[in-house]
Nucleic acid binder design. Sequence first.
RNA 1: GCCGGAGUGGCGGAAUGGUAUACGCACACGACUCAAAAUCGUGCGGGGCAACCCAUAAGAGUUCGAGUCUCUUCUCCGGCACCA
Length: 1128
Amino acid sequence: MGGYDHKKIEKKWQKKWEKDGLYKTPDTSKGKDNFHLLVEFPYPSGNLHVGHWYAFAVPDILARHLRMQGKNVLYPIGFDAFGLPAENAAIKNKLNPRKWTLGNIEYMKKQIRSMGTSFDWSREVVTCDPSYYKWTQWLFLQLFKAGLVYRKETAVNWCPKDKTVLANEQVVDGKCERCDSEVVQKQMLQWNIKITDYAERLIGDLDALDWPKEIKESQKNWIGRSEGAEIDFPLTGAVKDDSRFLLLHGRESSSEGEYQPWLKAELEKRGYEVEVVDMPNPSEPDDEEQADHVEKHCTLDERTVVVGHSFGGVVAMRLLERGNKVRRVVFVATAVSGKFLDGKIRKSVTRACKKGFDFEKIKKQARTFMVVPDLTDKIIPISDAEALAKNLNAMYVPGKGNSPHFTGEKEPDVLMMCAPTIRVFTTRADTLFGGTYLVLAPEHPWVTLALDNKHNVLKNKEEVLTYVGKAKKKTEIERQAVEKEKTGVELKGVKAINPATGREIPVWVADFVLGHYGTGAVFADAHDERDFAFAKKYGIPLKETLEPLVVRTSGADTVRDGEPFMERNSAMAFVQHWSEDKYLTVKYKPVDVRGCVSGGMHEGEDAVAAAKREIAEETGYANAKLVRKLGGTIHSKYFSDNRKTNTFAHFTPMLFKLEDGTQVDVTPDEKSRHEVSWVSANEMTAFINHEDWRIAWTRVQSDACYAGRGVLFDSGEFDGLTSDEAIPKVGAKFGRLVKQYHLRDWIVSRQRYWGVPIPIIHCPKCGPIAVSDKELPVKLPEVKDYLPEGSGKSPLAKVKKFVQVKCPQCKGKAERETDTLDTFVDSSWYFLRYTDPKNSKQFAAGSKQKNWMPVDLYSGGAEHTTMHLLYSRFWHKALFDLGLVGEPEPYTRRMNRSLILGPDGQKMSKSRGNVIDPDEVVGRLGADTVRMYLAFIGPYNEVSSFPWNPDGVVGVRRFLERIARFQECVSDEDVPELEGILHRTIKKVGDDIRALKFNTAISQLMIFLNHAEKQRKASRTQWDGFIRLLAPFAPFLSEELWHDVGHKTSIHEARWPSYDAARLEEASITIAVQINGKTRGQASVAPGSDSMTHEAAATKAVQDRLSGKKIVRTVVVPGRLVNFVVEE
RNA sequence: GCCGGAGUGGCGGAAUGGUAUACGCACACGACUCAAAAUCGUGCGGGGCAACCCAUAAGAGUUCGAGUCUCUUCUCCGGCACCA
């Protein structure tokens, strides 16, 4: 093929570059700015596909260009080597996943090298290497020690036949991918990371990032903030019990401390007797001394509910150990281990805890125990609460404190656990007065409590138990099947009080309410489609409290900003035909408002009379009779074309029927403005073009739910307010304004073999404990069989040597955690390791990080927009807060690349047989061709997809051959004709590369070659410049040509050519000559000429057309066009 | 349903509000050749002999001038979705 032997060239230069260490990137280079260009590291699946080429070879163009521009560019690579495919291959083919993975890596490295990318392999990172995952474990433990990691019962996909936990990807249509049996939900203790604590910052910090808008929007969407209010509904009926409360405060507190007075008042409001006690020596408390004090001064009997806050909980346990029997104990943020998150010493507490507790004895002294840790606690570790709940077989109900450690003046989560109160979350507090029932999620803690054997509050316990049991068994997918009818059961014997109206309302359980969102409970009203349908189905009463309010925001009657409104009462009438099932429509022609008859009421006229008059005036029909009013009022704001003012109309919607077809005369004026016609009920929906009419029409046909915004009525002091005004006011008065997020905490536990072992030891006494730094890494043990153990634990659980350890604290028997970490943890920090890949003392030294962080540009796939990008941003922020990294955001600029499809326009897949094998194309046409074709195929930084065109790639090859051939035409002779185009090319190629518009950069290179070929010659200097422009795109060929003309050093170390702004223009340029904006001819002028108008007027086309016409205006765009505006 | 993005020749696509269709592919014709391939040259949105007219999903608007800005509608793609 021509004189271009790509195989020889590519082999030669690949070897030479590697020998010279051309792409070894120093941490710093004198006089050069650093630039960190990051691409997502690949999973070692074993074979390189076109997607990899697209992901690595195209950004390499930018890397090479920036280097030629004098930047010290780090373009690193590694392998995301843990994960499911290796394990699946291991199970299926009886392979060792490590060997499988490392073998794949070796093979893929060879392939990647063939691309001619300038990766610095000396910084390669492999996540399954113990020298890497040691630091993954270490970083995980830093978050653990900072209280950002906790365990929680979470539903996992469980295959009953394989007895294994399934990843979401392994569940296909609700069935196990492997054995096709039905997947069920199973509750298991899983490690979670508190990403939700960072939700607000993850949204807020997006603003400052140079990221495409759509990625930011996606992330915001994923986090899903909604602003609303939390409102408490006290329960009655069930709670008319004779409980009495004893409140025990904690260390450094008193009966007046923290929430104690507030809680007492709240409980008394609900009719309970409450006793508070001041403990002796609160600053250095002694558990036994305080227990003595309580025994002496307080009543402890089987009616008593003891609420122990912090150290008060310890005292409560001592009291029970001594044989005191009570009804219930609520442990609020109680210490058990004597260890604290903030590292401070609280000697008295630790001493008391060290003595241990006789849980078996305590368990027998009360009917129920509740453990209420604060998830935002900065003192007591969450593991204390877990251990306590486990030991006492207690209800474990984590809450969130108003202040950490429940030290606020009001702590509603504590109240909720003492006296039954249901907290709901709503974004529509404006409908609170119409809240006629409550709905709880089946997993709501209060439902669990009510179903507990020790209570007898429900009259239909069996029914509820059955329903809740069924709901819990359902998989997430089933529960999310939206089309399905909603089901639920009433909790009979229990009522809630609507705090706004004071009325008792029924309480239901239904699985359409999600346990994990908001508070797991909602109040329901007539202005929500779902609540409305549910109430109709079960005959629950509803109460409307909103009249619709419509603001017209499109078309000619759009409300005019800043102008006053004229209020008027109006009639709105649907008129039915006297014999057919048809309705009258009226189109108000001047502004295309399509509806029915409407008009303002005159002085002394009621709505019905006004409607009858308007019917006659607009349509001529005389004998209309009222069928019924269509309920309430519909408010509408619009600009009245008729009166030329903003109007705030209050419509009374009505249905009329004509008794006969009698008509009176319609004035010509009315006729000209209104177009009247008859339509069927079905056509009406399409005819109406305004929301207010549409709302009224839905009421003609059935009683429909109005779920939009409106004006409040029957809502006490809030009557007359609009929804938007009322939402914050009502929310603040009856509850508190809060934000909720759809984002859930990050579950990192995987019951899998091929991952990073979670470095935790479980001690039956001390709870979960971090493995000490010097024991890291906790190495992944070898196992014989990669199938999970039958109980749902990972295969690690079968390795006794691995599992059985001593507790690092109490030296007793303990067990290692056997779950492994989600691989998203591995990839949340890999770019940090690139900055200091060999460090055995630290994950990356701060001084090294500084060279390359934050990442200047991160290029990757759109599929990582929400998961990987969000997790790694969170991880980085957590490390930033711990002082381990120097900046709160890891990636300054991000771009999502497009997608390469098969030649048939479909996603490449083996089953479709449309897979392009890059190795084959490279063998046939060369790596330079493949790189360049991929860059040329379409814009790189727009999320789009491009089919691989086998003809198109040959076209690029032809271009490279023409370049190779043209080198013979280069001589020392000057070719001034090429100067302008060369300088324009230098400018455009550079600009386009930096804007990631590689496709137009290449087209500009092609344009230059077309020019050169037309001249059949180019000077040596010009050609040198052109080859350097080509170098980032075709590194092999350009290097070959460069050396061919006598250069001794690599073209990739050459400087990027510079252009001369003065030489961008040609000697004469062609401008367009327009008349009234239409191009009528062309004129040739000198650049910067001030006689453009003159030249343009002299053209024949203009002279012919302008004769006898008056030029009103002349628009001149320098270097572009002259436009003569003439009178028509 | 909600949130994004996009609709330009036969195809991939180009176009700071300023000559729409650059560049490439495909196609057609021509040159070279005994012939073919390769290569080179010419043409290539639609209509019209032409002057010219019509075309950037459809419709309106702003402007001397709109693929580009505004509004409405349609279609396609991506994400989220019983989220209270």
